Measured scan of single mutants.
Amino acid sequence: VTVHVNRYTYHFDNPEEAEKFAREMAKRLNMTVEIHGNTLKVE
């Protein structure tokens, strides 16, 4: 599972951890999480 935050890319083996990380980053940056299959984008 890949998480994109701005120009950074993070890889996770565990989808739940990836989503938790993405949501935490989105909250911190006041952004939203978009899910595209195995890719989560924080925008």
Results as ranks from 00 to 15, higher is better:
H4S: 08
E16H: 09
N30W: 03
E16Y: 11
V33C: 02
M25H: 03
N30K: 08
R7C: 15
E16T: 10
P15L: 15
N30T: 03
N6M: 11
R23Q: 10
F12A: 00
H11Y: 14
N30Y: 03
T39I: 14
R28V: 09
Y10R: 03
T2W: 12
V33A: 02
N14V: 08
K41Q: 09
V1G: 02
F12G: 00
K27S: 10
V3E: 01
L40W: 05
T32G: 05
V1H: 08
E19Q: 09
E34K: 15
R7A: 12
A18N: 00
V42S: 04
N38L: 05
N30H: 12
G37T: 04
E17H: 07
T9S: 09
A18S: 01
P15Q: 13
K20H: 10
K41R: 14
T2Q: 08
G37S: 03
T32N: 09
E34G: 07
E43V: 15
K41S: 12
V1T: 09
N6R: 07
I35K: 13
H36Y: 11
E24T: 08
N30C: 13
A18L: 02
T2G: 02
V5W: 07
V33G: 01
K41N: 11
M25R: 02
H11P: 03
N30S: 07
E24Y: 13
H4C: 14
T2V: 12
L29W: 07
R23I: 10
D13K: 08
R7E: 14
H4W: 03
A26G: 04
E19D: 07
V1K: 04
H4P: 01
N6S: 10
E43K: 14
T39E: 11
D13N: 10
N6I: 09
M31T: 13
M25I: 14
Y10P: 01
E16L: 10
V33P: 02
F12D: 00
V33N: 01
H11N: 06
N30L: 04
N6E: 12
N14E: 08
T2E: 07
F21N: 00
A18Y: 01
P15W: 15
L29I: 03
M31P: 01
H36G: 04
N30G: 14
M25V: 13
R23M: 11
M25D: 00
M31H: 08
F21P: 00
N30R: 07
E16K: 11
E16S: 09
K41T: 14
F12E: 00
M31V: 10
T32V: 14
M31D: 02
L40R: 05
E43D: 11
K41G: 06
T39G: 08
E19R: 07
K27V: 09
Y10Q: 02
G37P: 05
H4M: 12
E17I: 07
N38Y: 02
E24G: 07
R23T: 09
R23P: 00
E24L: 11
M31G: 15
Y8I: 13
F21V: 02
F12W: 02
P15C: 15
T39F: 09
V42P: 05
G37I: 05
K20S: 11
L29S: 04
H4A: 05
D13Q: 10
V1N: 03
T32M: 09
Y10G: 00
E43P: 04
F21K: 00
N38T: 06
K27M: 09
V1L: 07
Y10H: 04
L40Q: 04
A18H: 00
V42T: 04
E16D: 11
V5Y: 07
A26L: 03
E16G: 08
I35C: 12
V3G: 01
F12M: 01
M25E: 07
H36T: 10
A26M: 04
H11K: 06
N38E: 05
F12K: 00
E34H: 15
P15T: 10
L40N: 05
V33L: 08
R23C: 15
E43Y: 14
G37R: 03
A26R: 04
E24Q: 10
A18D: 00
L29Q: 04
V3H: 01
T2L: 08
V5G: 03
T2S: 08
E19N: 07
T9V: 14
E34R: 15
T2R: 07
V3P: 01
G37A: 04
D13H: 07
L40H: 06
V5R: 02
K20C: 15
T9R: 09
M31E: 03
T9W: 10
E24D: 11
G37E: 07
K27Q: 11
H4G: 02
E43F: 15
A22F: 02
H36M: 10
L40F: 07
N30A: 05
Y8K: 14
